[in-house]
Computed example of a mutant assay.
Amino acid sequence: MGTHLITGAGSGIGAVVAERLLARGEDVLLLARDARRAAELRERFQGAATLVGDLADPAKLSWAFGHQSLPVELDSLLHIAGVVELGNVGDLPVKAWQEQLNVNAVAPAEITRLLLPSLRQARGHVVFVNSGAGLYAHANWSAYAASKFAVRALADSLRAEEHGNGVRVTTVYPGRTATPMQEKVHRQEGRDYDPAQWIAPESVATAILTAIDLPRDAELTEITVRPGR
């Protein structure tokens, strides 16, 4: 059994991963943006502990974590949280760029930095749930794709830097997945949303758990998950 920290456990892929790890008897730590949200997560995920830190304000994460107990050993750090705001380059305001870059890229980098000692101690695993938008940027996806391209670079650099410390790094690139974020994307695109058309969150969760469960003689560096329909 191990200790795992999950961001984005409130819905979608993150919620499924949290449920499955708890069902296995693992120690699960869930990141919440504030104390109220932390209480909601503990109520929903019985047996899980919480850590409070706002991904939208990564400059304050070090201060926030400094006032809480961090695990001495961390077997996996699962970056699943994300935000999206579509719009063409001519219309997207600075705020939309900053929020997506902060939540999707800068905060994961900072959380990883703060928890690297614990990950090294456990020879742990960092998983970044990226996106197809981290491989190719379509029209109206500039800010979100830029944040995901940044996460790809973060993962590649981290893998090269930490290989000698025994820390494994995996990037998962899901296609469109039936989550609340995807429902929001459809609203922004002006399209009807049918979750049956897209990947189930459970399928992406299976890919994540496969990566962290892989025996230590191997490392899944990148996993691309696409709709099968």
Score class of each variant (00 low, 15 high):
residue 17 V to R: 10
residue 43 E to Y: 02
residue 33 R to Q: 14
residue 22 L to Q: 12
residue 46 Q to W: 08
residue 15 A to R: 12
residue 58 P to N: 10
residue 54 D to V: 00
residue 5 L to C: 05
residue 33 R to E: 09
residue 26 E to W: 08
residue 47 G to Y: 04
residue 21 L to H: 06
residue 49 A to W: 00
residue 50 T to F: 01
residue 39 A to K: 10
residue 51 L to T: 02
residue 6 I to L: 15
residue 30 L to T: 02
residue 23 A to I: 00
residue 15 A to C: 02
residue 49 A to G: 11
residue 48 A to Q: 10
residue 64 A to G: 04
residue 32 A to K: 15
residue 21 L to A: 07
residue 7 T to D: 10
residue 28 V to M: 13
residue 7 T to A: 13
residue 44 R to M: 03
residue 54 D to M: 00
residue 21 L to W: 09
residue 54 D to C: 01
residue 58 P to W: 03
residue 17 V to T: 13
residue 47 G to S: 11
residue 59 A to M: 03
residue 53 G to F: 05
residue 31 L to Y: 04
residue 55 L to G: 02
residue 17 V to I: 13
residue 57 D to A: 14
residue 36 R to G: 09
residue 11 S to Q: 08
residue 52 V to A: 12
residue 41 L to S: 04
residue 53 G to P: 01
residue 8 G to D: 01
residue 53 G to K: 05
residue 44 R to V: 01
residue 11 S to K: 03
residue 25 G to D: 06
residue 60 K to Q: 15
residue 61 L to M: 15
residue 1 M to Q: 09
residue 46 Q to R: 12
residue 28 V to R: 14
residue 44 R to H: 06
residue 12 G to A: 12
residue 52 V to D: 13
residue 4 H to S: 10
residue 10 G to D: 00
residue 13 I to D: 00
residue 26 E to Y: 09
residue 12 G to E: 01
residue 3 T to M: 03
residue 43 E to M: 09
residue 8 G to L: 04
residue 49 A to Q: 08
residue 33 R to D: 07
residue 60 K to F: 11
residue 27 D to N: 15
residue 58 P to L: 09
residue 13 I to T: 06
residue 66 G to I: 01
residue 19 E to G: 05
residue 51 L to A: 11
